[in-house]
């Protein structure tokens, strides 16, 4: 397996950011566990019911998803590593190796896949611990949190594939960041416009809530809607994610085969 060395290289170059992000995620997980213990059995359990419910809801999701997001962040080191490969002599050197371009792409993907699997496993263990503190059992079928973890990691993985293609296409760090920022801003504006429009409709329809209450209920409603979507829609989303990854793989390999040095 010729790309074994390239995978080793990828991990070696990203090792600091991986260790740092995982340490950070570990701190957040510990904070989450302590907070949950305090809410159920410690000082925070003495709060009034309404405040406790609201804090319980918030901290549960916060301490469940944030570590997963933090652990997925090293996926984006693919931008710096790819741009550095082009700007240094590594990319030229790589063209002198008896390894296909697809091997170089797969090497970076293997690193990202391993990071994603580790993030998934730690995310599940974290969810299990958080649940067990409340003496509940984690269910792979009933609990929507696990689906959310899978979605977060899948999206982060696909984004890293898109970013890798952009990095191979534009080769300079500033050029890549500018394009990613443009896509992110457009995406953010789109999501915000959708949320405002739907929130507006929701508040008009449910005039019994004030804006603050309405917003909380609306977000929970949207979250539940997202987690309980029809199986066909789920399949379509899964297909889109897989198709995007495959498309990015093809485009990245084709871009590297162009040999624009």
């Amino acid at each position: 397996m010729k790309m074994k060395g390239l995978v080793y290289r990828e991990f070696f170059l990203s090792r600091k950011i991986i260790i740092l992000e995982y340490m950070f995620a570990f701190i957040v997980i510990v904070m989450g566990i302590l907070t949950r213990i305090s809410m159920l059995y410690g000082n925070m359990a003495m709060l009034d019911r309404e405040t406790l419910d609201s804090a319980d809801n918030f901290t549960y999701y916060f301490f469940l998803y944030i570590p997963v997001i933090i652990m997925s962040c090293p996926l984006f080191s693919v931008i710096r590593s790819t741009v550095t490969d082009f700007n240094g002599k590594w990319m030229e050197m790589q063209y002198t190796f008896p390894v296909e371009e697809s091997g170089w792409v797969i090497a970076k993907w293997i690193k990202n896949a391993i990071i994603s699997v580790v993030a998934f496993v730690i995310g599940i263990v974290n969810a299990g611990i958080i649940k067990s503190i409340a003496e509940q059992r984690l269910s792979f079928i009933k609990d929507s949190e696990l689906k959310a973890i899978v979605i977060i990691i899948s999206l982060m993985f696909v984004l890293s594939c898109i970013f890798m293609f952009i990095s191979c296409r534009y080769k300079s760090y500033n050029g890549v960041i500018a394009r990613i920022a443009a896509i992110a801003i457009l995406g953010y504006i789109g999501v915000m416009l959708y949320i405002y429009r739907e929130l507006d409709k929701f508040i008009v329809k449910h005039s019994e809530f004030d804006v603050e209450q309405g917003m909380g209920i609306f977000l929970m409603h949207e979250y539940n809607k997202l987690m309980n979507i029809n199986i066909y829609v789920k399949l379509i989303i899964a297909f889109i994610i897989c198709a995007t990854a495959v498309l990015m793989y093809v485009l990245t390999v084709r871009q590297l085969k162009r040999r624009e040095m």
């Binding site: 397996m1 060395g5 390239l6 080793y8 170059l13 550095t84 190796f97």
Partner: peptide
Amino acid sequence: QEEFTPNNLNKIMKSI
């Protein structure tokens, strides 16, 4: 890359 050692290079190259 500057952070590699000759030992690291050996590990990379032997599979290539």
